[in-house]
């Protein structure tokens, strides 16, 4: 008898779970006007709402004094799985007369980047972040090799 009971339980469970799924999709179909997730992109370029975690490109954060938090530790370069980041360092002379390692050029190859976010997680000083810009089309691929630190920028005081 237990065989028949299990069999009927199977059938009942299947019918019930399929009905649950159909209820959900029918709710979506009825409310599709209110909850639609499609962005009509080229039309709403000014009011485009991107998801919070959308990753467009890596940027180095600069504040209003043209200062960033990159110490030139190359943790991001080591973390990058396909070598999209190249950090060129230099030695600054501190007021005490000591030599200190600092960032010279932050080279970022957008053409190789897969937006994996590993460099941002590796950064000990949160100097870089993922920006949400995504219109990256260029006619020359050399334009995709970017230098992220702005000219004349320097490390913020107190960042070690």
């Amino acid at each position: 008898m237990s065989f028949i009971k299990n069999y009927l339980n199977d059938v009942w469970g299947a019918v019930k779970s399929l009905a649950t799924g159909m209820k959900l999709t029918s709710q979506y179909a009825i409310h599709h006007k209110k909850e639609k997730i499609t962005q009509l992109y080229p039309d709403n370029r000014d009011t485009l709402l991107l998801p919070e975690r959308f990753r467009g490109e890596v940027v180095l954060i600069h504040d209003e004094n043209n200062e960033h938090a990159c110490t030139g530790c190359t943790a991001c370069e080591i973390a990058c799985p396909n070598g999209s980041i190249k950090i060129i360092t230099k030695f600054d002379i501190t007021p005490e007369g000591k030599k200190k390692k600092a960032l010279d050029t932050f080279v970022y190859h957008l053409d190789m980047c897969t937006m994996c976010n590993l460099c941002i997680e590796a950064c000990p000083t949160d100097a870089i972040k993922m920006d949400q810009t995504f219109e990256h089309s260029v006619t020359d691929r050399n334009d995709l090799i970017k230098i992220l630190n702005k000219p004349g920028s320097r490390i913020r005081d107190g960042v070690e």
Partner: peptide
């Protein structure tokens, strides 16, 4: 259209 509505697309 039906598939779009059920997936909250246009």
């Amino acid at each position: 259209k039906v598939s779009a509505w059920m997936q909250l697309r246009l």
